[in-house]
Amino acid sequence: MRKFDCKAIVIGVSAGGMLALRKIIPVLSADFPAPVIIVQHMHPYSDNFMIHDLDRKSTLNVRQAEEKENISAGNVYIAPSNYHLLVEQDKTFSLSVCERLNFSRPSIDILFETASEVYQDKLLGIVLTGANKDGSEGAKIIKQRGGKIIVQDPKTAESKVMPQSAIANTNPDHILPLTDIGDFLNKYINKRNK
């Protein structure tokens, strides 16, 4: 397989997200070379249960993204609920409470769009299960800037709307069943320092 020289991965997931992420994040190898940044739509006041749970199951360090924090490999960052998560040119995070986009805050589109400004053709975007169309615009922008897109095969999605919409809106590089995505990433992404 042709490897992808990837500097960051962004993932958007909504309804059914917790179970989907459990099938991907714990599979990623300890030396996984790119930081992973996730927007998962959640209830505005939900607690950190998902983060602790994923962190316990994974070799990578799963944590909530904090404003101004440096983005680095070895970490899986999850957007705090009720804030949009943005990537700055110096590869740090910023947060915003501006209007909901696609009824969502955090919004997948905003993460995808700002991350692609920074990582350009070295960015991989992944759209997973979800019940709205958030992520479709962002996926299109990532493709326009030369990045890659993977979409979860809607047949394997708890909620098909989001992956279907992403497929309709862009031309994904890969459409994969949920349980294949983790292994695929381990092989697809160039290892560190090689």
Partner: peptide, 9 residues
């Protein structure tokens, strides 16, 4: 100001 948000707007 943090640039990403300003630029989007």
């Amino acid at each position: 100001y943090s640039r990403a948000s300003i630029k989007r707007r």
